[in-house]
Nucleic acid binder design. Sequence first.
DNA 1: ACTGAGCGA
Length: 414
Amino acid sequence: MAQVQVQPQAQMSGSNGAASGTAAAAPSGGPAVQFQSTSLYVGDLEETVNDSQLYEMFSQLGQVVSVRVCRDITTRRSLGYAYVNYSNPIDAVRALDVLNFTPLNGKPIRIMYSNRDPSIRKSGAANIFIKNLDKTIDNKALYDTFSVFGNILSCKIATDPSGQSKGYGFVQFDQEEAAQNAISKLNGMLLNDKQVFVGPFVRKQERENAVNKAKFNNVFVKNLSESTTEEDLKIIFGEFGNITSSVVMREGDGKSKCFGFVNFENADDAAQAVEGLNGKKFDDKEWYVGKAQKKSERELELKAKFEQNMKEAVDKYQGLNLYLKNLDDSIDDEKLKELFSEYGMITSCKVMKDPNGVSRGSGFVAFSTPEEANRALLEMNGKMVANKPLFVALAQRKEDRRARLQARDVHPFN
DNA sequence: ACTGAGCGA
């Protein structure tokens, strides 16, 4: 078993945390289906996994009655899940226990009992979120650590495309009580010497709503028509309560920037105004109305969004994106595209520039397949372009690059 | 830094 070393973060009275929680593991009134079903749902399948591969694997644990990878009715493409039916429920339990998270074609499968009623899955009840997990903790270790508290319907560590743990994961139990127990026993504990957070799963949207529940008096409004004035704002927002000030932001010549602020005496009125006016149309313009952010808050949010976008872009282009340097200043996006297009289909292409628009001598070219990218790398690296030898390498993730530079004790030149 | 998707014959 891939048990994880569990330690209490602080001394707990006569308890060693998880190990004492075994009483919770008793299936007190759990659904009977868990214990006699012969039908397994096998999900997270790699695209090309087929029936015979699954049969070979699952029949080692008992007599398999049927195996079926579900496919799109017209394209026949795998839907990424399958059903495996055993003749004996005991074999099904063993298969789930032994084969869960076994990689097939490089991707760990995730096994659950088949249940055609989606209500439990959809409800998201008894679903918990775990973060700050040590990267060496894998699906099995997570499963074994949490199964002490009850029946797990599904469990998974979030990973990047290469399979590396992102340090957080999910466990869904069949009973609310088990989830509560797991949270109270394991939140703040050390798993492999890292203090983990264990809490109820909360959808991103709902987390953001919670943040926005903070009281505020100042309201931001944008997408105003150019003719909308402070007076108009006073009248429209005044319906929701007393206003201490309203302003439409303007250029030096008095032209509206089409956004403004309205300050309420009363925070509840401000919230009502957001609720009542956001998305409403005035002069054919759909207003955005929301809590006004301080400049620092707004900058933080924009920065976070920017970094998130960068990260997603890098992930998407992993193995497809080439990093270039020692580019001559005369080479712009267009010329770069011409230079590389003979090696394949270019999906994006960019010369990095300083704020004055002058080339920084570096850039990126992304291809539609890793093969194209590789060939372009081999052929173009060191090639003389505008009298300068071009440097070409696979673009690296930011954090990988930092780690590599640190390892060699080299410092970035920029 | 970081909060999911998933059920047929």
